[in-house]
Amino acid sequence: MKRILSLLAAAAIFATTSAQAADITLLNASYDPTRELYKDLGDGFAAQWKAKTGDTVTLNTSNGGSGAQARAVIDGLQADIVTLALAADIDAIAKTAKLLPDDWQKKLPEASVPYTSTIVFLVRKGNPWKIKDWPDLVKPGIQVVTPNPKTSGGARWAYLAAWAYAEKAPGGNAGKAKEYVANLYHHVPVLDSGARGSTITFTKRGIGDVLLSWENEAQLALKESPGQYDVIYPSRSILAEPPVALVDKNVDRHKTRAVAEAFLNYLYTPEAQLIEAKDFYRPRDPVAAAKYKSQFPNIPLATVESDFGGWEKAQSTHFADGGVFDQIYQPGK
């Protein structure tokens, strides 16, 4: 038995360390909707890296809810880089497992956020319920599909977008916002654990009248099934900032620091920014932004920094155990 276990372990070591020299493998732990994005970016980077160094880079990506992915890295998933839905999940890796420094967000430009997104409404073709803005979501009989904010990053952005809208609406305040958000979640029939699960529930299963979705995920749904859905931009939404980071301890162990860093820097290059814009993420680069201008309507966006006092505060107020989100689901509230 012992021998078999150590054989197994040896096999596992072999599998993870054999790829070296001219064959480099990077593991990217990412959130749900980025499957297509990181496939394209991985291919783009591999071509560039091969031309520069002659080495072959393969980017493997593991997808799941943002919280689930952070949990896996904390438990020892050997990811070289993490590209998650929000800073709080990478903060958790830094705090709980100390795999990267607390100030990881300072290591890359734009607070380590190479592209942004926002939260939009996806409705069925022709918008039968005339859903135009946030107040329409809580009308009687409307069903809203959104994932579980406890585990999904996109859901946390959607929650904060709803909150920011209600708080900043004429006559709005924190109490009103809480009331609105509670009301909104009582219109939710299914809480999937990740953004992609919710999209499938809404599109394939025909559940709900509106999907609160990442802009990129909504655009992708339009592309995958043309003529079935409309994207609605509410009057206000939130600037969703999905950050990227190097997992220091893991890259040092794998000796992949140079290539992993190069990949993260590549995300900011004009070439990569065009790929990101093509896959419906709002680029930072002005050239890419100009080229895809029509794809990203300009609406007022709240930010976590200015409206919620940063992720640490937003996380502990709203999503921590016993936080505002938990209170919504207390009986009698």
Partner: peptide
């Protein structure tokens, strides 16, 4: 000791 059990075959 570079032994991978979780998130690997073992």
């Amino acid at each position: 000791h570079d032994i991978h059990i979780l998130f690997a075959l073992p």
